[in-house]
Design a protein around this nucleic acid. Sequence first.
DNA 1: GATGGTGGTAATCGACTGATTACTTCACGG
DNA 2: CCGTGAAGTAATCAGTCGATTACCACCATC
Lengths: 197, 197
Amino acid sequence: MVSKTDRIPATERREQILEAATRVFGELGYAGATTDRVAKAAGISQPYVVRMFGTKEQLFIEVLERTCELIVAAFDRAVADEASDKPVGPRIGEAYVSLVETDRGVLLALMQGFILGHDPNIGPVARRGFLRIYDRMREVMTPDEAMRFMAQGMLINTLIASNLTVRIDQDERVDELFACTFGDKLGIVLEGLSRSA
Amino acid sequence: MVSKTDRIPATERREQILEAATRVFGELGYAGATTDRVAKAAGISQPYVVRMFGTKEQLFIEVLERTCELIVAAFDRAVADEASDKPVGPRIGEAYVSLVETDRGVLLALMQGFILGHDPNIGPVARRGFLRIYDRMREVMTPDEAMRFMAQGMLINTLIASNLTVRIDQDERVDELFACTFGDKLGIVLEGLSRSA
DNA sequence: GATGGTGGTAATCGACTGATTACTTCACGG
DNA sequence: CCGTGAAGTAATCAGTCGATTACCACCATC
């Protein structure tokens, strides 16, 4: 009972599934997510998801590697941006914050990978991804600057993951923390939130 | 088949289970952990764990609240420490790093709670805990300082959770990042690692 | 108009897991 | 010594989930 338009080349379908899985894993975590939810988010059946990637674990690993590539790519674009007159640090910062707005699932899925460091198969992939991002930072800043950037990024991830955004405009402490964390980029975040609401 | 010495008052047993559950949830996450693993870690049977806390979810919530209390208590001790001549910032930092060494499960369980912010029951508890810790920081430092401290803390949590410690002394980037993150407190961490090995 | 490869699903299985039930053992007060 | 409640477990159930199997629909091309 598949209409003609539902039949899509495997490579394209693969990307659809990865996109859906990024959102689902990002929200529910690796163990909390099910292949069926990924399938529903991608608009296909659960067995097809499993057959395309072999196992749930393999799917998550590919999601994780994809998120790292997306983040590194966003950083590269920010670094290479000749149009901006800002220093490279703030440019990368802005690139990361833009990800919060446009592709929250990427940040959350990355976070979910990091906390699986104990897993024998996923752990190494997560560590490799973390270091890949750290390396990219180190190419354009000092160790101390890179460390602070990673720290800021982890705080942002935590703020988004813990859903503290729901308390914006309702809790002074939250407003203060968000203003302090995002600085002049706060507008980008708030705009993204109002759009997704 | 219970020997006499295995019978323990409920309140005491309760604390044992919370302690074990903190470790198990910290390592495997909420969805990834099972009540049976918690039970085995606590040295009792699985049904007893469930009966003591009602549901797995309730157990996790109590674990989460306990971790926040432990962290806030550690901060309070650091702030009140009259013997030290250091400023309050580094004292709290040292208190947090000491937790990495002595009670890694606490930090990991906290992290696991933060990324469950979307959960209708656990999410509010996680946010409340986060803000409680932030409030404690704000009592002794500026918003910007508090934000940087939280960021640093989240980076530390991520480094521990992702198990990047296994690459210490094997990857120059990791050594650099750890040295930069922990600064003069690096010794505390390394000592804790060698002891747990 | 057979044939085979590609895209896809329905049905189902087996393992796992949270929760429930019913039971046992023990300490202690009257 | 009896009974009552607290501490604790074995057995088991019901639901969920990842994976497998067997199958269908479509299109190309010979």
